[in-house]
Design a protein around this nucleic acid. Sequence first.
RNA 1: GGGCCCUUAGCUCAGCCGGAUAGAGCAACCGCCUUCUAAGCGGUCGGUCACAGGUUCGAAUCCUGUAGGGCCUGCCA
Length: 585
Amino acid sequence: MLAAIATLTDRLQQALVSAFGPELADADPVLVPASKPEFGDYQANGAMALAKRLKNKPRAIAEQIVARLEVGDLCEPPEIAGPGFINLRLRPAYLEAQLKVLQRDERLGVAPVQDPHKAIVDFSSPNIAKEMHVGHLRSTIIGDSIARVLEFMGHDVLRLNHVGDWGTQFGMLITHLQDVCPAALADDSQVDIGDLVAFYKQAKQRFDEDEDFKGRSREAVVGLQAGDATARAAWQVLCDQSRQAFQKIYDRLDICLTERGESFYNPLLPTVVADLEQQGLLVEDQGARVVFLEGFTNKDGDPLPLIVQKSDGGFNYATTDLAAIRYRTQQDGAERVLYVVDAGQANHFAQVFQVAARAGWVPTGVELTHVPFGVVQGEDGKKFKTRSGETVRLQDLLDEAVKRARADLESRIQAEGRNETEAFIAQVAEIVGLGAVKYADLSQNRTSNYIFSYDKMLALQGNTAPYLLYAYVRVQGISRKGGIDFTQLGDNAAIHLEDDSEFALAKHILQLDEVVNEVAQDLLPNRLCQYLFELSQKFNQFYDRCAVLQAAEPQRTSRLMVCDLTARTLKLGLSLLGIAVLERM
RNA sequence: GGGCCCUUAGCUCAGCCGGAUAGAGCAACCGCCUUCUAAGCGGUCGGUCACAGGUUCGAAUCCUGUAGGGCCUGCCA
C-alpha cells in the first residue's frame, strides 16, 4: 500500500502546515505501520518530536494536526493515544476497492521502477576442480533471489558466475592430470576424472611433498599463461568437468547464470597494471608492484598495499577484480554491480573498490556494492566442517533434503490411506526438499553468521517452505473441490470483508508492494520470507475460521477472490525466492 | 597492534535509519479432524535484549567504554 502511505504522509504534511504555518513544511510526520493491530494500521509519531520546536505539549499538537487532517476517504476518524500518537485505521471500503485493483493486476500492485538500470549480480562463483559446498549455497541462493527481485522490478540484470578457473593452483592440477590421465589430453570429450575433490587433494598432496612435481607445476602455470597448447588442453578438461558438475546443481536449483570466470580477464591484466602505473598510483615495494591504500594500515601503522603484481611477475585476484570492474563498467555498461560474497572479503572489496575509484574506473553514478553474507559455522561456532573434516557437499545436502521430504510424504500418504503415483511423490519431494533448503537459507538475515544444522536446514515444520507451500495447496484444494476457475470469478463481483481474520489477511496481501520494494532496496530476501510466512499464517487463520465453498453468496465469491489473491501472492513471492509451488502435496 | 562484524527466550533466529506491553519457529505441556488436505488452528510455559555509562520526551535500536566470540590484516582466491 505504498500509495496509501504516500497519500497519508502528504495529507499529514498539509495538516501540519495548515495548523502551524508554512515553516512546518519540512517537518516529518513520521508515518509508520502501527506497532500493534489494536492501534489501527498506521501511526504518525511526529507530534512528540515537534513538542520542543513548537513549545507545546505533544498531545495538544496531535490534536491540532488531527483537527486539520482530511483523510476521510481512506481512514476512519483518527485517534490520539498515549503521549501523542495519531492512530489511523483504513476503511473497509478502501481496502475492498484496493483488493479489486490487485485482482486485475498480474503484478499484484508492485509497479516496475521508473528508471530501470543495468545491473550485474556477481554470485555463486565456485572454484574449478573443487566441489560446491554449503558456503557456495548461500551465495548462489541469495544471489539468485536478489537477481530475481531486481529483474521483477524491471532492471536489466546480468547474472555473472565469476568462477575460480585461473591461478597458481592450476599448475598442480594440470601436471597431475598429465601424469595420471594422459588420455584426457588426446580426446577431451571422453574423459571422466571422477571425484574432482579427491583429484584436487591428490594433486595438492604431491605438490606439498614432491619437489620435482612442484617444479613441473610452476612450469605448467607459466605454460598455461603463455598459451601453451598442452597446458591449455589440460586446463580445458578440468574446466569442462567442473562445469558439468556445477550445471547439474544449477539446473536442479533452477538457477540461471552466465559463466565469466577469472580466466576471462587474464588478457586484460597487464593493461590494468600499466594504467595504474601511468596514473602514478603504482609503487614498487619489496619486489611487488602495489597501490598503497588510504585508510588501511598494517601492524606498524604504515599504509597497507594492494598487490596487483607479485614479485614473480604474476597477477592475483585483486588484479582480476580490478580488470572485472573496468570491463563491467565500460564494456557491459553496468550502472550497479553487486558482489554476493561472504563477509570475510569485506576488506578485499573495500580495497579494490577504492583503487578502482582512484584510478577513475568507476564513472559517476555507478555503484559497486559488496553484498556480504555471514560465514557458515559449525555447531561449535568455528568454521564449518563435518566430523570427517570435510565440508558438506552441496549435492549430498540436496539429495538428503529430497530424501527426507520423500520419507515424510510417504508416511503421510500411508497414514491418510492415499494412493499416489511415483511421479507425484518424486515431484513433491523434489520441490518440498529443495524449497526447504532454499528457504532455510533465505529466511535468515544474510549478514548474520550462520550456524549450520542439517536438521534445521532440512526441517519441514514451522517457519519453512512447506508451510508456505501448504497454504498455497489449500487454496488449490478449494478450487479443485469447488470446481472453481479463479480467472472466471468476474470483474463485477465485489469483495466484502467480514471476519477479523479476513481483514488481517486482506491488509497483508495489500502490503506486497512495500515488501518487494524494500527487498529491492536493502537486498535482504529474509524480509520477503517473513512477509510470506505471515501471509500464510493469516491465511491459515482465515481458513480455519471462515468457510469458503459453503458460504452463501455474495460472500462465497468474495472469499474465493481473497483466496485467489493469497495464492497468487504466495506464488509470486516464492518465485522471487526461486521456490516453485505445488497444486497438491 | 589495527580494521570490520556479532552477543535478544532452553535451542535456532527476527526486530535495529529511536516510538506504546520485545516477536517467531523449534523443544515441552494442554486442547481442536462427521464440514474446503491436521504439512493446520487455538492455548500454556519461557527475557537483566552480554555488561556499564551517555544522548533523548522515549533506547534492543544511536554514541562511548568493558567482557566474550567470529572474520580480515603483503605476494592463495
